[in-house]
């Protein structure tokens, strides 16, 4: 038998090389589409419409993977876009942020193209692990998921259950810190007054909310935001290497960490709300 060349076993050594001629990444993220969105929609929303105020940007690591965890609210939530833009604008070393989205988007025409082009990736544990561990990227998750966006205006800033702690396990396995993020403003920017279950079933959408502009202004009304003031606070990262080897086998620990992250964000939200003098200014 011919001997094989001495090979490393770390999968990170075998990532494909970057081809500079390409404008689309292997994940389907397009520099061109993202740049266009960034220069037009995000720029306007960030600076003029929501007038974002950012605190604690220095907590976002300048290199290596990190899992950003944020609260999530509103129909077609603008929070993900604003967190992306905040890192791009305020961070000394701007980095792309990958947003995990529901598999639903991959199957819905139009969304399927757009969401992946502007940095959305299907929320599959393998995807998150590859990005965090192998590629050392920033990934943003909303552990509330659909429960957050379905939430009505009367329940604003009350965090839903944080899934089953899948995000904690993902961060532990990838050996990257968890970075909690608290966002104030999204709930007022896109308030949801009611959810129509029947219409949701008929249209095949993820949910069918009643907002100030939807459905009477059509699908575009989904993106009709009220000019609420946005405040984004990046909290202290939580290292995940403090619990010894293979901490993900301890389901209790995972649940505790998930609850802890949730409590930190919730406390921060109360604090930010207490200091907020006006929803709009």
């Amino acid at each position: 038998m011919k001997s094989l060349p001495a090979a490393s076993t770390d999968p990170r050594d075998y990532l494909p090389a970057i081809e500079p001629e390409r404008q689309v990444t292997d994940w389907g993220r397009s520099e061109r589409v993202e740049g266009l969105m960034d220069r037009t929609v995000y720029e306007f929303l960030y600076h003029y419409w929501f007038r974002c105020e950012v605190e604690g940007i220095e907590n976002v690591p300048a290199e290596g993977g990190a899992l950003l965890v944020s609260n999530h609210a509103g129909a077609l939530p603008p929070d993900a876009a604003m967190i992306t833009k905040a890192i791009k604008e305020e961070h000394p070393r701007p980095r792309p942020l990958h947003l995990t989205v529901e598999h639903f988007f991959k199957g819905y025409p139009g969304f399927s193209m757009l969401v992946s082009k502007i940095g959305g990736i299907p929320a599959h544990p393998a995807n998150v692990h590859r990005l965090l561990h192998d590629e050392g990227q920033l990934v943003l998750v909303f552990p509330e998921g659909r429960k957050g966006t379905e939430k009505l205006y009367k329940d604003r800033y009350r965090l839903r259950r944080f899934g089953r702690g899948g995000f904690v396990e993902a961060a532990m396995r990838a050996e990257v810190p968890i970075q909690p993020v608290a966002v104030v403003g999204a709930e007022e920017a896109a308030p949801v007054f009611a959810q129509m279950t029947l219409l949701k079933r008929l249209t095949g959408l993820l949910y069918f909310p009643i907002t100030p502009t939807f459905p009477h202004f059509g699908l575009l009304g989904m993106a009709g935001y009220l000019p609420a003031k946005f405040r984004i606070r990046f909290l202290e990262p939580i290292p995940t290497d403090q619990w010894g080897p293979e901490p993900w086998n301890d389901r209790g620990l995972i649940q505790n960490v998930a609850d802890d992250v949730r409590a930190r964000i919730q406390d921060e939200l109360y604090d930010m709300l207490a200091h907020r003098k006006s929803v709009w200014m």
Binding site: F104, P122, P125, A126
Partner: peptide, 12 residues
């Protein structure tokens, strides 16, 4: 499929 991972590995 819709709910595929972005990259299949051999063990999947």
């Amino acid at each position: 499929e819709q709910d595929d991972p972005a990259f299949f590995t051999e063990s999947m």
